[in-house]
Design a protein around this nucleic acid. Structure first.
Length: 424
RNA sequence: GUGACCGUAGCUCAGUUGGUUAGAGCAUCGGGUUGUGAUCCCGAGGGUCGGGGGUUCGAGUCCCCUCGGUCACCCCA
């Protein structure tokens, strides 16, 4: 009987795993150099935990289960924030501030798979808690950009689109959107790119805005403003000065050298109700893919999970969309797997008896040594195997031992006791 | 959860209006030749055509269901 892998999951064969580990390594290395410490939690939590932030509605999106004979409902983790909030809330008083944590866990969501979205995925989570400054927002965004650059992307290929919850609310109020219509206005912002101008105008009209204001609303939410260009935003809104929160954020982004990567786009909403300040998404520049990363400031969430009042800002970056984008741009190298230092082959049957001794000596010395398992003594064929596995040196065991540098083609005979040195 | 398209070997594909034991290239494995990453030659394994049911004398070809894939909607924590 042949059983297929569950819908929306991936098998990682050696070549896939090599890239996967390369990505996880990059996430970790960038996190560490930006001063974040790695954490993790259980792969399942009580179902209850996920209802705290997202409500009952979340349940249908989860893989939840009850142990046979048990009475507690559990769910495989669909995201990291509740676990993080729980961990922070538990030890909030003992932890040195600011708290700078990252994690690279896998998550499961019961969604219908499509491009950029699977049922199991890995996500890099970066969170900075205990600081409520624009500098903290900028540092987190810097960390995100640092990773993108590390993997070979530049500011023409990906864009960090930034908005700000409080500023958008302020803008909507300035436009005259009544309090009770604010949620509708947020939805409209989110959907703007999927609507024709006519549909947009019609929907905007329902917010109680007159024609001139509908037009202004549309301009503000469709237009992008470069860093340093906030006066244009102010003008679009008929304001004397741009919103103070954005001005301060922009100063910090520039201080971190991020101006080229970022643009202000008030149409970035993020579905989440819990964001309180900055929100941002990273997109491929032409906008063909789903968001590569998304995050923002959530100053009230730790309290929601029973912790003390604690400001926080963070983001998540999934492996699926990121890999799609990198693949499209030819930025996934095929040589990221472990590369053998030496490939040991026998040129005669007598020599074959020496392979275990030679290989084990190299391995004990810490070298990554492989050998041929084939019966053939055809040196040409065996050298091809050596090349195919990416080995740096071939060790040809015959009447004497010869070391061939597979990159330069240089080959020379070495004494048995000089072998290790020849490979270093 | 809704809708559309798609499933033949590990990969890319061929397979006549339904008609014998389902094919090719690449890859894999083995062998031969030439002590050097190559070339050439020979050979092998591998598929019950995603799975199940139906129609038929006969189904990879037609129908239904189901599983999986792709895409859009939804959602996007």
């Amino acid at each position: 009987m042949k059983i297929q892998a569950p819908k929306g999951t991936r098998d990682f064969y050696p070549a896939d795993m090599a890239w996967h580990m390369h990505l996880l390594d990059a996430w970790r290395a960038v996190s560490v150099r930006n001063g974040f410490e790695q954490v993790d939690g259980p792969i399942f939590e009580t179902l209850e935990l996920y209802k705290v932030k997202s409500g009952e509605g979340i349940v249908s999106e989860l893989f939840s289960f009850r142990r046979t004979g048990g009475e507690t409902d559990f769910a495989i983790r669909p995201e990291f924030t509740p676990t993080l909030a729980r961990m922070v809330a538990d030890k909030a008083n003992a932890l040195p501030k600011p708290i700078k944590w990252f994690a690279t866990p896998n998550f499961c969501r019961a969604e219908r798979p499509q491009r950029g979205r699977l049922r199991e995925f890995w996500q890099w989570n970066v969170d900075l808690l205990g600081l409520d400054t624009p500098a903290a927002d900028a540092e987190v965004i810097f960390t995100c950009v640092d990773l993108l650059a590390e993997l070979g992307l530049d500011s023409t290929q990906v864009r960090v689109k930034i908005s700000h919850r409080a500023v958008v609310k302020q803008v909507l109020e300035k436009l005259g959107v009544p309090e009770d219509k604010l949620p509708g206005a947020f939805t409209l912002l989110d959907k703007r790119d999927k609507m024709t101008p006519d549909e947009f105008t019609k929907e905007a009209g329902k917010l109680g805005l007159d024609e001139a204001r509908v037009q202004r609303f549309e301009e503000v939410c469709r237009r992008k403003y470069a860093s340093g260009d906030l006066m244009h935003l102010a003008r679009s809104l008929a304001m004397d000065e741009p919103p103070e929160d954005l001005v301060k954020l922009d100063e910090q982004l520039r201080a971190f050298g991020l101006a080229d990567w970022c643009e202000y786009d008030l149409g970035i909403v993020r579905g989440l109700a819990y964001y309180t300040g900055v929100v941002f998404e990273v997109h491929e520049a032409t906008g063909v893919e789903r968001a590569i990363a998304g995050g923002g400031r959530y100053d009230q969430l730790i309290e929601l999970f029973g912790g003390p009042a604690m400001p926080a800002v963070g983001f998540g970056m999934g492996d699926v969309v990121l890999s799609n984008v990198l693949a499209d741009k030819g930025l996934i190298p095929d040589d990221v797997g472990p590369r053998p230092d030496a490939f040991v082959l026998a040129a005669s049957d007598e020599a074959a008896a020496q392979l275990p001794a030679v290989v084990s000596e190299l391995r004990r010395a810490g070298l990554h040594a492989r050998m041929s398992y084939k019966a053939t003594r055809n040196v040409g064929k065996l050298l091809k195997d050596a090349t195919n596995c990416g080995a740096k040196f071939a060790v040809i065991v015959g009447e004497q031992i010869e070391v061939k540098n597979l990159e330069t083609g240089d080959q020379s005979a070495v004494g048995r006791d000089a072998l290790l040195d020849a490979l270093r």
